[in-house]
Design a protein around this nucleic acid. Structure first.
Lengths: 227, 227
DNA sequence: GTCTATATGCTGATAGAC
DNA sequence: GTCTATCAGCATATAGAC
């Protein structure tokens, strides 16, 4: 369900470079697009951008190789649409940190939101991480800018909580990094602590447990009064 | 200084597949090998395995393209030697967790060791992270096994501390993931929280500050008595 | 819109002169 | 040991029939 929303978003906001000039997308076309996008996310996540071949994406999607290029015009555009499908949701998650909310409550909501994104789009989320790791060179510039802006805003919000004594006096930037990195690590490796996170999607119960654990471990460090 | 040690390690333990049958490596050969290995680590870190071309590595190293293949025989072997140069040090870091030590002291030492590895071999460390993220498919099997064994041992050690009441009752596996992920995130993004960690190596002062911050944030969550 | 066949460029690896 | 020239294979992308 959420996945289809994502696909729609990606279709309604194609990369500016090559806007498809279709008026009314046919039903089979829409379905193929959605299918290819999902398969591409999984393949990019497993092999990375360069190692992924459009032939493989086409084969796994059950469509001829040329159709992938017809629908998405280029490998890079396909990749960026996969990224698009999670970037907006990450921005929304950061927006949960607002200075007029209760800090611990907001932080726990952020953790939960991020884990929910990862649960519904595990592959695209992993593609996003890999892209960040390699310097976000293929992330469209406006996305990079909006992300940086939102992050700065989130850090300022944490700092405001610290200044008003609602959070312990830790470095706001480090706190945000910790929350981000920890949630992502749970997504990548789960409780298994091995690198075989690809073999199966994390179950819902596992993720609820993760929310509790992250909150317990990370948020206890910022409680006021334990300094 | 530490960098050269690393290179030596990689040369003295070449991938079993193609052991070079040289008796006394000539001085220019050794120097070229070391140089290529360093350049390769940086390039693999920035672009990933598939996107890295041997032509680029050769050009940046200032040697003819064919020499890279002569020295390392294959792209995959070159890549695995880069991985080799950090795997052993990570194993040593995990070994710092011993049940007969003081938990907080040992954990802080682990954090410091990991950040020190990342400071002396930032590129190889990032290659290692990317390899883990993609399922550790190219990590030699014996390395994977030793890592998993060491991780299991570390988790058992944490559990022993928890059972004996020296640590708060958190999930041992989650605690290890948190420590690992947080230290790695500092390495990748530093205090900047942006994706431009490649532009400059983190300074020593920055890393000491990171050790303090990680310890403060993560370790406070496992203090006994604040439950 | 859909698909087959093909063009073009670049890669890893090697053969063989020096 | 070192390097130039080259091979064989595969990738993305497109042209053009249906």
């Amino acid at each position: 369900m959420l996945y289809l929303d994502t696909v729609d978003v990606a279709n309604e906001a194609p990369c500016a470079a090559h806007r498809v000039t279709e008026k009314k997308p046919n039903e089979p076309g829409r379905r193929n697009r959605a299918l290819i996008l999902r398969v591409a996310a999984r393949t990019f996540a497993r092999k990375g951008f360069a190692a992924t071949t459009l032939s493989e994406v086409a084969e796994l999607s059950g469509v001829p190789k040329a159709n992938v290029n017809y629908y998405f015009h280029s490998k890079q555009n396909l990749y960026q649409q996969v990224l698009d499908s999670v970037t907006q949701r990450y921005l929304d998650a950061f927006a949960l940190l607002r200075a007029d909310h209760d800090p611990l409550d907001a932080l726990e909501r952020l953790i939960r939101a991020k884990l929910r994104i990862i649960r519904s789009q595990p592959w695209a989320a992993k593609v996003f991480v890999a892209e960040m790791l390699h310097g976000a060179r293929q992330l469209p510039a406006d996305h990079t800018g909006r992300l940086q802006g939102e992050i700065q805003r989130a850090v300022a919000c944490l700092q405001a909580w610290i200044d008003s004594g609602q959070l312990a006096a830790v470095d706001a930037r480090y706190l945000l990094v910790t929350v981000w990195a920890t949630t992502q690590a749970y997504a990548n490796f789960g409780a298994r602590l091995t690198a075989d996170a690809y073999k199966d999607k994390a179950s819902g119960a596992e993720l609820d447990e993760a929310v509790a654990s992250v909150s317990r471990l990370v948020l206890r460090g910022v409680l006021v009064g334990t300094q």
